[in-house]
Amino acid sequence: MKKLIPLVILVMVIDFIAELIGTLTFTLGTITISVLPLVFAVILGIVFSLIPSGFFKRLYSNDRVKFAGKYMIFIMLPLMARYGADVAPKINEILSIGWVFLIHEAGNLGTILFGLPIALLLGIRREAIGSTLGLGREGELAYISEKYTLDSPEGHGVLGIYLIGTVFGSIVFSILAPLLLAMGFDFRAVAMSSGVGSASMMTAASSALVAIHPAHAETITSYAAASQLLTSFIGTYIMYFIAVPLQRFIYNHMTAKLDKHPVQEAA
């Protein structure tokens, strides 16, 4: 318990600074980007650990860092409970286009269709299995570590994208959401696609949308939350039954072609 109190104080300090910075909004060309306090919170959590002083070294003890990782999921649960309240008032509207929500989950395969070819062309091989199976969050981490262990190339691949996602995920999605709007997509389509299965990415994306369309805030958050819920429901099974075979198929065919012409190191 004594070890916990400094951690709680650290989190409160981070929260305090992040909230005082507040939401920063700026425009890049025609795109309006909102950077939320949660982005500053993750950055501060990392930056404090880099301060070269004995005090911060001791503050970021193994125990506390491990505790933060292990129990982050429980810290996140009230947010998950909040989604229920966001979805409930709009449930009829959502059910009326329920099939849209269902089939758009197939878009999850975009990680493989876009990510895997690029990875293979860049000369990445087995690591690519881990880093393109999905968004590289808890679900993929569990699957890959069970099947290949985290010490394998596949494991390094999924750990890599997990780290990148944790550090940069929310900022990337704060930019992608307005970008998709600027590409001409309906805000409802972008909103329901924001429930990608990662709470921080979904929050960053949907908040960025709300900042642009404040009048539709309720629709945006309810659509995002509903699809987040659906993703957590069926995302694992899409991964097991569709993503894994699809990935294997593309991987085998592409590596067979690429490695026949000996430009890259053989896998």
Binding site: L7, L10, V11, I14, D15, A18, L38, V39, A41, V42, I43, L44, G45, I46, S49, Y60, R64, V65, A68, G69, Y71, M72, I75, M76, L79, L163, T166, V167, S170, A199, S200
Partner: peptide
């Protein structure tokens, strides 16, 4: 949540 995430990595 994100403060915890930052600390955890």
């Amino acid at each position: 949540v994100l403060a915890f995430a930052g600390i955890s990595v």
